[in-house]
Design a protein around this nucleic acid. Structure first.
Lengths: 231, 231
DNA sequence: CCAAAAGTGTTGGTAGTACACCCATGA
DNA sequence: TCATGGGTGTACTACCAACACTTTTGG
């Protein structure tokens, strides 16, 4: 085995957040060190010798932004020889989701600042990170139609309309309220919590729901398929 | 940037082949060097310093088996700390397809032998390569239902029944001949070559078809979706 | 003329889409 | 009482699944 290989391995995370008021956003850090000093980039960094790839992503993300993630999935590995101007670095990218309100952002280590940016209003990014974000978005849009991952972006208890707005805004389509509700309800993966929405301003308050992962798992064992396709 | 990282980067290829008589197979090499000497493994090896990941896969594949590939796609990156007993090595895996008859296998460099193995009759594999093959198979099954990649496994000109057998054997289901034909033909992505099958033994010979990639591309620009779902 | 594979239509069920009005609440 | 958002049913359409006999060829 030749040992003259000189390539570094890093991980990067595309973390999506969602709020009914602001829509879909991505978590970025402002770099404290060269290259691309002061520019915005994905949280991430070199993998430690004894650490799994997932652990590396979670560690870097926590160090740089203060965010801990629950849903995380590998996206793609980027290895073009000159994507990093210093050495050759391949990046194994991940994407994940959090509820933005559940964390206070705290920049640290290599990051000077950490912020949420709306998906349609991203700054230009360091390295090939724009490409990574676009790929992650594409994957999110696809995945949300055939796996119930949208719930990772909502509060644990949510009114039905939040789910509807989430789908409409992520998929960027207008959808029929009645048909959407019918479909989701048929799956039987939501449980009504018996509570009502509180102080919503105007309008009739609706009940709060909770996603039931064990019910979903049971259904998946059968030949049931979660599948949302609208327009 | 700390430079004490000591991780090597390799690529591995899961190459699928298909023939109407033998069904779906995977290309494996027998290792010439330790660890796992003499055991079967996926073709692959370390990425060179100046080489893209795809180039690395193609090079290793060609060196070790004599096969050149046309369709190739990234699968997943495996990075568990002890997956290689020597050093830490992360592997970026790819999967691809060839028509097995179009190459004579020639083992070389790290490979002592190179052979096709039927997907249901694989030997035990070195490293975590069994896991990689299983993942590739899962992806192939999924992908063949929503992208017309099956053609990569057939001869350029093929009788309709070959396509049908391919789907039946990859997806491992019995499918309705009339409905399958109806669906594929509706897409309009096959062109009849005006030739007939030759010396087929018994039975009525059918016409030969060719996949029309530009027609498919045109359709995809619209809101058309290739989609085969049976049983 | 027999065996093997190719070719071909119709029907019933199911799931998707389109669409409009009433209800509960807060201001 | 008005504005805002929540909640609900039906009819039409389009697609999918099931199903069997005839045709062409080689032996």
């Amino acid at each position: 085995m030749p040992t003259n290989q000189n390539i570094k391995v890093s991980v990067d995370a595309v973390v999506f957040g969602y709020s009914t008021t602001n829509g879909l956003s991505v978590l970025l850090i402002q770099r404290k060190i060269a290259p691309y000093i002061n520019e915005w980039a994905l949280p991430g960094g070199l993998v430690l010798n004894e650490e799994s790839l997932e652990d590396a992503v979670k560690r870097e993300l926590h160090e740089e932004t203060g965010v801990s993630i629950n849903y995380l999935e590998q996206l793609y590995s980027f290895g073009t020889p000159n994507r990093d101007p210093r050495n050759r670095v391949i990046s194994i990218s991940y994407y994940g989701m959090v509820r933005p309100d559940s964390f206070e952002l705290m920049a640290d280590t290599d990051a000077k600042d950490a912020q949420w940016f709306h998906i349609n209003d991203l700054p230009s990014l360091a390295f090939d990170h724009s490409e990574i974000v676009q790929l992650a978005l594409k994957r999110l849009k696809a995945k949300i139609t055939y796996e119930p991952i949208g719930f990772e972006l909502l509060d644990e208890k949510f009114p039905f309309s939040d789910l509807e707005k989430l789908y409409a805004s992520v998929l960027n389509v207008a959808l029929d309220r009645r048909n959407f509700r019918k479909k989701i309800m048929q799956f039987g993966i939501l449980c009504n919590q018996g509570e009502k929405q509180q102080h919503t301003g105007a309008g009739r308050p609706g009940p709060l729901y909770k996603f039931n992962p064990s019910k979903y798992k049971a259904l998946k064992e059968g030949d049931f398929h979660f599948d949302i396709k609208f327009a």
